[in-house]
Design a protein around this nucleic acid. Structure first.
Lengths: 164, 164
DNA sequence: TATTGTTATACTCTATAACTATA
DNA sequence: TATAGTTATAGAGTATAACAATA
């Protein structure tokens, strides 16, 4: 039998959160699982892992960005970015252009196929995002975005990303 | 040299987020990395992985809870809970008591050591949570908690947890 | 037959560190 | 000597499925 996320029809206890209720570690853990859970299907359909879609979006918004800047913006390790980008390059969605000024950098940009696949992915993730926050009214959605960006900006601290 | 999360003093580009800015998948990914990043040290010190601390907290607030209920509340798989709890049992922080009414269930509770370690962990995670959201004023912190709980409650849907 | 929990396996994500090539 | 990116490896997180014991 399939091991679905437990519906738990028998016990149906209503768990108390106690001190965890206002805890950012707990809340982000659960909300992240909520997001992964509902996005798993379409992400796989597109042939990506979720990190790759994020990278496509950032490259689309910042043509010529370096891998290091992407890592800093996402709090990923540069080694992690290497692997994800490498796959995108092999599948002809991203190209690395050597920068004349400093040949250590790769300037990343989307290929024609990359732009196409990003358009499709963008529709999907926007639709998915809307569905996850559908319990919130427009003002609440904006406020959630604002608060999360504020928290992230404060913790990133180094100003690589225009979070504020 | 150590591969620290990139400070990136050279380029210091200010990345644009584009469509990702309001995207819940993107925001939760980054904020989750922010949290993991700042909690890694003290979680390891306590000798746990982060999931275990969450489980300790939920068991503390719900003595006699079943593994299935924990999995449902966290959107974890029951197989994942098995592994994490098993380790906590071996280290004498948690005990599984067979329930007379239905011997399939394990009723979980904290041992004396479990309660002690949870007290220490509780201080740490509360302090950590405060530091992560220190850019927010008290009203904003409450609002962030409220909005995240509302999103989670709506997506959990099955009412196992008292999120609302 | 259905459910709780276990076991096994694979894939994704993250962390660390040594390496290269450039500067 | 410092930085951008690569490679290798390990640990943590999650997904899937088959299984035993119990209901």
């Amino acid at each position: 039998m399939k091991d679905r996320p437990v519906a738990n029809t028998t016990a149906k206890r209503r768990l108390k959160l106690g001190i965890l209720r206002g805890n950012i570690g707990y809340l982000t853990r659960v909300v992240r699982n909520v997001v992964r859970h509902s996005s798993g299907a379409f992400v796989g359909e597109l042939g990506f892992v979720t990190g790759q879609i994020t990278l496509l979006g950032l490259i689309a918004a910042n043509e010529g960005v370096s891998q290091n800047d992407l890592a800093a913006a996402l709090l990923m390790r540069k080694s992690q970015v290497t692997g994800l980008i490498q796959d995108l390059v092999e599948r002809d969605y991203v190209i690395r252009v050597e920068m004349g000024t400093d040949r250590r950098f790769n300037a990343l940009s989307l290929t024609r196929s990359g732009k196409q696949v990003w358009r499709r992915a963008r529709e999907r993730i926007t639709c998915h995002s809307d569905s996850v926050v559908e319990a919130l009214d427009p003002a609440e959605r904006d406020e959630l975005t604002r608060l999360l960006c504020k928290v992230i900006a404060h913790n990133l601290k180094d100003g690589e990303v225009d979070f504020e």
